[in-house]
Simulated scan of single mutants.
Amino acid sequence: MPYEPAEAMSTPSPTEEIANLIRDNDGRLGEVFRLDEQGFAPDEIAQQLNVATVGFVYSYRTYANAALHGKVPGGSTLRKATLSSLNSLVKAGRDVLSRDAMQLLLAHRSAVEAAESDAEPTVQEVEDNEQQERDALSTLERLRGVPGIYAFSYGWYLESPVDQARGNTLIKVGRAEDVSARIKQHSSGARAHMPEPLALLRVYSVETPELGHTERMFHQLLDTAGHGNPRRRGLNRSEVGKEWFLTNEDFLDTVAKALKLTTLYIGRSEFADE
């Protein structure tokens, strides 16, 4: 089992309460957790969720183990993603968890926060960060020449959501005939005026002839759900910002499911200009 089992009790322990909170999650975290508990292997989970690779399974296992047992992941990128997941669980658990369970979840979040704020990374930390950088470059190589819908944001939007109440933040959703080239283009442009590299969140597979139509449908579903960019209200449609939405990763996956798109990439890899 990828998770340490919580003790079975007539009254749920704080750890079991957190496990129940994760089981009830409607997003990828809950999906992976439930399938893991049913004994599915990572490749089987990816197949069931229509995701082309298995790496995301290990990431979501990391988030769950951090929430359940306070296990702190190595590498800054993975810790930031874990913190975001824990923040979402804290928000979801406010009216659900007992006081003891909430205190435990907050303590586990604090452990990850403390590790992320540590000014002196260990040798292992350096190695983990270097591996995550290699993984990011590998992702770009794998997406070379691949058409699809992509979504990215920046660290400050992900760590401090614009809409705290709904857990939504500004995410750019666009299309490209070559996702890798487009991400490199965005990264190069951002380097001149952004204080940190972009974070690629999702890539969904779409054949080139369907790109325009699929992007329009994706945007329409986001707008219809009230996830449009509030900073563009009343602006001309041709103005900058029309591809930015106030949304979240789980809702992006929901739209992709509705459009029957295969997920090529799930994560928060940060891409600096090469």
Results as ranks from 00 to 15, higher is better:
164 Q>H: 11
68 L>M: 05
181 A>S: 14
260 K>C: 05
17 E>Y: 03
267 G>I: 06
39 G>K: 12
232 R>E: 09
25 N>C: 12
173 V>L: 00
73 P>L: 09
141 E>V: 13
116 E>L: 15
25 N>M: 08
229 N>Y: 03
1 M>A: 15
211 L>G: 10
256 A>G: 15
131 Q>R: 15
195 P>E: 04
11 T>A: 15
170 L>C: 10
264 L>S: 09
219 H>M: 00
171 I>E: 11
36 D>E: 14
112 V>S: 10
80 K>H: 13
202 R>L: 12
60 Y>D: 09
18 I>T: 00
91 K>I: 08
102 M>K: 13
51 V>W: 01
59 S>R: 14
174 G>C: 07
73 P>F: 00
5 P>L: 06
231 R>F: 15
213 H>M: 09
127 E>L: 15
174 G>V: 08
87 N>E: 01
57 V>F: 02
245 F>S: 04
84 S>D: 04
103 Q>G: 12
59 S>C: 05
108 H>A: 03
147 P>C: 12
270 E>Y: 11
257 K>V: 00
273 D>F: 10
21 L>A: 07
47 Q>G: 11
150 Y>P: 00
49 L>Q: 02
228 G>S: 14
4 E>N: 08
199 A>F: 02
186 H>C: 07
80 K>E: 12
45 I>C: 03
239 E>K: 14
126 V>P: 00
191 R>L: 09
168 N>L: 03
21 L>E: 04
242 K>Q: 12
202 R>W: 00
129 N>L: 01
83 L>N: 00
38 Q>V: 05
228 G>C: 11
235 L>P: 01
95 D>T: 14
120 E>S: 14
19 A>K: 07
21 L>V: 08
5 P>A: 10
215 E>M: 05
